[in-house]
């Protein structure tokens, strides 16, 4: 086959593909969707850039807030820490009660061992008290 005939076939193939894709009907959950490949290309590029921008913005405001719910005791300011950081906090005080431990739940069933606990996301520590 000559080069000219090859070129014609390739051109036709590219054109056919473009026409075929513009007429191809979606099915399933996309059955009511009417969108072109060109528009999808734009959406993919813009949304991908948006993901990268969001990651960069998220990096500017890094850190996880660790909140301290003293369950009626003295107020402790939340701390902003990074992934893997240790938690260091003073013991709260509460009249008529003795501070027992920090826990990861309000019922004080899941003890939070601050020596081994490391930050892996935002969470709240709850103070556990023993009545005096």
């Amino acid at each position: 086959m000559s080069n000219k005939e090859n070129n014609n076939i390739n051109e036709t193939t590219v054109k056919d593909e473009a026409e075929a894709s513009s007429f191809k009907q979606f099915r399933g959950l996309y059955s009511k969707v009417n969108i072109s490949v060109k528009t999808l290309n734009i959406i993919i590029v813009v949304a991908s850039l948006a993901i990268v921008i969001c990651i960069l913005i998220g990096l500017k405001d890094r850190g996880y807030f660790i909140e301290f719910n003293t369950m009626g005791g003295s107020y402790i300011e939340p701390q902003k820490l990074m992934y893997g950081d240790e938690i260091s906090v003073e013991e709260p005080s509460r009249e008529g009660y003795r501070f027992e431990k920090w826990a990861l739940d309000e019922g004080c069933k899941i003890t939070a061992d601050l020596d081994s606990l490391r930050v892996d996301g935002p969470f709240t520590l709850y103070a556990c008290w023993i009545e005096e």
């Binding site: 959406i43 993919i44 949304a47 991908s48 948006a50 993901i51 969001c54 990651i55 913005i57 998220g58 990096l59 405001d61 890094r62 850190g63 996880y64 990074m82 992934y83 893997g84 892996d120 996301g121 935002p122």
Partner: peptide
């Protein structure tokens, strides 16, 4: 998570991932 990216931003990123 390792980079301590603002956790509120993760919801936006997840939504964009579904879109892409």
């Amino acid at each position: 998570n390792f980079l301590s990216v603002n956790p509120n931003m993760l919801y936006i990123i997840k939504g964009l991932i579904i879109l892409v």
